[in-house]
Structures are given as structure tokens and as C-alpha cells.
Write a protein that binds this DNA or RNA. Structure first.
Lengths: 286, 286
DNA sequence: CCCGCTGATACCGGCCGGGTATCACGACGC
DNA sequence: GCGTCGTGATACCCGGCCGGTATCAGCGGG
């Protein structure tokens, strides 16, 4: 009966409450007072005819419908953000040709990226490419919400569901250790050896919904990780090409049995940009 | 500076105007008067700081930014619709287990579908599956806007960009002709032979943005097509399994050089449903 | 037992979305 | 050339919603 889609504001409000599981904090995050937020969620529940939150007097929990709306609503919000961002960019360029935003994990792919940009610039009529460094595992979100048009990433960290991609190169992985550690002197290591050292737990990166379980420290960026490793408090496993940020206090040891990882160029599956197609074509010829 | 996403209403209005290229008709389609619509679009352009429409005194045209916003906005609206629909469905089931909506092109895959549903129902604890017939080439839109959770489709008609999929079976294609036509008596045909008969142009299906160019008649559903073929006014090429709707006035002749088409089970790439995963697992074991 | 914390309710004011009436301008007709 | 038509834009008004403050209602803990 209700054929009109949910309003963006309703989704934003619900996602905030569903993430915080607390009306007060969610309202603060949204920059508003708590009562209007409560009313908005009630109205949303009435509109959908469904209970989204189980108010339990000492907290808020998600119902099945709420979990569904959280997932789908996040995707919808990202798509909406992307629509605005990309339209704005398309208009701001004022006929000077499309401009592509390429997201690259900071510090990775130096060599591959240089070759790709050089080859692309050499193409006649190629679009300008703006390279933006991305946080860790943030590239896919940047593609989804329109902050980037195309990303250069290693494929295994997260699946490429929802994106088109082109494989560019394959490489091995290395263990990054403190330079003074006994294992750092080895010519090569196995995954089992690295995982079995209790004083060097493998650092954990945040996933979409918090950190994976494990003993290692929780880190958010390369600098934090670099410091922890230099201090002898952690180890990490990285693709070979992602090691250009290493300090002299670090050592990189090849891993003989780590899965190969591949550099991929990825972009939103529905993209129809000429400039993007040209960049991908250039990349496949490298 | 503007970090809030566009409102769903703004996107709906803009998409309507961009599709009609006429404020009055768009307003009528939206069930509102024209002046508020004009104002809303102006406000949207101000908010984005970008010109979306080139008003030209006797018509409206899309700028580059407008084209971008039309594409991205459609995707965002579909995602928003999907969020509401799926949340509503998830809640309406009231703990009776998930329910999957499977979209199937009407008349296709009879045998495969029977086997799949039987095998799935035989699994202990399997979710209920609701089969909804879909219009022609409509399945992907149904997945995107939440009317369906999973679809059974032939892969070549449109690319599966943005979806995960599992190949189920491969089959050849047949030419569907009027029973009395000379070619209908042949044991097999080639694509070239079918394409070269001037009195039997191949019917054209609507794509996302209108009909592909060509001489054939434009048809919207199987019944129209069946009638045109029975009248000797058109021919069509179909996968073998899609021919259960044929009349006695039709003849199906195998095509020796048509590309093989595969039946695929497809679902939104970001889906995380247990019930869906179980259905896919069952399907792969067929 | 009372205080603190949670979310819900009551009430109010301002803004914005939508409607009607009208305008400005170019295209056509005679 | 002038009237008419059709386009989108503007003017003005109203009602509803959106958000804010003040307050209430349960439940836990010291």
C-alpha cells in the first residue's frame, strides 16, 4: 500500500540508533535532541508496520526487521551519498572532461600505481586522475558512497561483491617483524611459524562491524601498526608491495606458504563512465 | 561542506523530471502541482551547487551532472525501496522463519525450478520460498528494489553486475516460428538463416532505457509475442527451457550456432541471509 | 528509599512542502 | 504584428512536520 520509499532522514536516524543502541548517544551523534529522535523512530515503525527495536528498559536491541533495515539502510544511504557526490563532481568539472577519483591504500602499490598513471596519462584524451589515499580497508566504502570512482586494492581482505574488477598483478606476502626479533634473521618463514610466536601477536584490522576476535592489538592505521611493530609488540602480514612504509626498525621476511594476493582495480558495477572504461583498458594492457 | 545526503523526495522528484524532461508531466506523474516541483528542483540545484537541467524555453535537457544524478539516483532510490520492503517483510514473518522471494521469468525453467524447490523443501529447516513470476527482463530490478531476494534467470540478456550468482545449468537456444512457415519444417537452423528472413523480423524486448534499435516489433510480454508469432508477424530466439508457453501454432527449431545460455541463480551481492545461503547450497548440489 | 538513567509524552514555535493564482517569455498562427 | 498557447518561474498563503524544552514513567543501584 505504501509505495513511497523511506525518507533519507528516517534511514539516517534509524541507522544511528541501531548502531549506538542508545537513543541519547544517537541523538548526540546526529546533532539533535533525544525526544524528536524517539518520535521519528516510532513514526518509522508505524509506517513500516513493523517493530524495529526491542526497548527493554535497560537498553535497546535490534529485532530481525531492525537488523535487516540496518544492513539495507546502510547500503541505501551510501548509494544516496554517492548520487549527490558524483553529481556534484560531474557538474563542478565544467566540461573540462571527466575526472576520476582513484582510491589507493596509503603506502601500497607504489610501483604499479606509477606505471598505471604514466600509461594512462600517455593516452590521448585521457581523463585527469585524482589519487586519494584511503584508510585501511576503506576503499570499498569509498566506492559505495561516491568518494571514489575506482580503487586499487588487494582482493582477499574483503570480497568484491557488488563491484566489477580487473586483476592487475599477483604477488606474495611477507611477515613484517621487529628488526631485532630472532625470526627477523630468517630468510623465509611459514604462516604457522609467525602465528605461533606468543610475544608477537598478529595485529587486527577493523572490519565493517568491529574487530575480528583474536589476541592481537587493535590498530586503525599504518602508523599505529608501524610503531607497535617497531616496539616489538606485534607482527603483521602484508603483500610485498605494501611495505614501502617500513622503518629501519622493521624487517620483512617472505612467507613461503601465504596465499598469493592480487592487485585489483575495482569500480561500482553500475558505473557507465567513459573515462573509467578508458582507465581500465589501459590497466589491462600493462 | 554539505555532509547530509540528499533526501529521498528530492531524488524522486529529480528522477521524474529527468525522465519526462517536462515539469508538467513529471508533476502529474508525482501527483502534485508543477510550481512546488520547479522549486524543489531549484533547491536541489542550489544544494548541490550544480546545474542539473538546461532549461531551454521549449524543453528541458540534462546536463552532465544531471545525467550522473539520474543514474546514481535511480540506484539510490531502488536501494531505499529495497530497505523498506525487506525490513517490512523480515518483520511481518514474525519469527516463523525467513521467507525467500524467488523471481522467475514467467514460463521459464519449469523443470529446473521444480527440482530446485523439491530439493530445497526436503532440506530440514529450510525456509519457505515464495515464487513470484516476473515480467520480461525485470528480475534484476526486482532484486535491486527489494521485491525479490533471489532470481532465476538466463545470464546473457543483461550482465550480472552487482549481483552474486551461481551457474545452475547450460542449454541451447531455439528459434520460435509460426508453425506454417517454411523454416518451421527444418530440423535445425543457424542464426544467420533466422536473421535473414525479412517477413519474420526478430521481436525486440525493452531494455532499461527503451528498446534496442532494429526492424522487429516492440513487445512487452510473452502473450504479445506469442500472438505476433502465431500471426506470422515475428520470430524470436529463446532458451530451450523457456518454451513451455508455446501454442500449437508455434514451432520451435533448434539453433545450431546460437550461444549457449546458462541458468543462473542471482542475488544482491550484499545479502547476508542464512535462508538464501541454504537455498544456493541446495541449488549447487542439483 | 531516593537518585540517576533510560526512553516516552506534552506542548509549542518556526520552517518548509504543497496548493492556487499569476507572470514572463518564446513559438506558432492568421 | 498581434493574439494565443504552452512552457517554467514567481508570489503568496496555509497546514503539517520537525525539532526544541520541560516533564513524566519505569527500573537499578547505592
Amino acid at each position: 500500500m505504501d509505495e513511497v520509499p523511506l525518507e533519507t532522514r528516517e534511514l539516517r536516524y534509524f541507522v544511528a540508533v541501531a548502531e549506538e543502541l542508545h537513543f541519547g548517544r544517537a541523538a548526540e551523534r546526529l546533532g539533535m535532541a533525544q525526544p524528536p529522535l524517539s518520535r521519528a523512530i516510532q513514526r518509522l515503525e508505524r509506517r513500516l508496520g513493523v517493530r524495529l527495536l526491542a526497548r527493554d528498559r535497560r537498553g535497546v536491541a535490534l529485532t530481525d526487521a531492525g537488523r535487516t533495515l540496518l544492513h539495507e539502510g546502510r547500503a541505501a544511504l551510501e548509494a544516496t551519498l554517492a548520487a549527490g557526490r558524483r553529481a556534484r563532481r560531474a557538474g563542478a568539472e565544467g566540461g573540462a572532461g571527466e575526472r576520476l577519483v582513484l582510491a589507493v591504500k596509503a603506502g601500497a602499490f607504489h610501483e604499479l600505481l606509477r606505471k598505471l598513471l604514466a600509461a594512462h596519462a600517455a593516452e590521448p584524451g585521457s581523463a585527469e586522475v585524482e589519487v586519494v589515499p584511503s584508510g585501511v580497508c576503506e576503499q570499498e566504502e569509498m566506492l559505495r558512497d561516491g568518494r571514489a570512482d575506482v580503487a586499487l586494492l588487494h582482493v582477499p581482505p574483503r570480497s568484491l561483491a557488488g563491484f566489477d574488477s580487473e586483476r592487475l598483478s599477483t604477488e606474495g606476502q611477507v611477515a613484517v617483524l621487529p628488526a631485532g626479533h630472532p625470526l627477523a634473521a630468517r630468510a623465509s618463514l611459514s604462516m604457522a611459524e609467525v602465528g605461533a610466536v606468543p610475544d608477537l601477536p598478529l595485529a587486527r584490522w577493523p572490519g565493517r562491524d568491529g574487530f575480528p576476535p583474536g589476541p592481537g592489538p587493535e590498530i586503525h592505521d599504518q602508523t599505529q601498526l608501524a610503531q607497535l611493530i617497531a616496539l616489538g609488540r606485534a607482527a603483521a602480514v602484508f603483500p610485498e608491495s605494501a611495505t614501502s612504509w617500513l622503518w629501519s626498525a622493521h624487517a620483512a621476511v617472505p612467507l613461503v606458504d601465504a596465499p598469493e594476493v592480487a592487485g585489483h582495480l575495482a569500480w561500482p558495477a553500475h558505473s557507465r563512465s567513459r573515462a573509467l572504461a578508458a582507465l581500465v583498458r589501459t590497466a589491462t594492457r600493462l
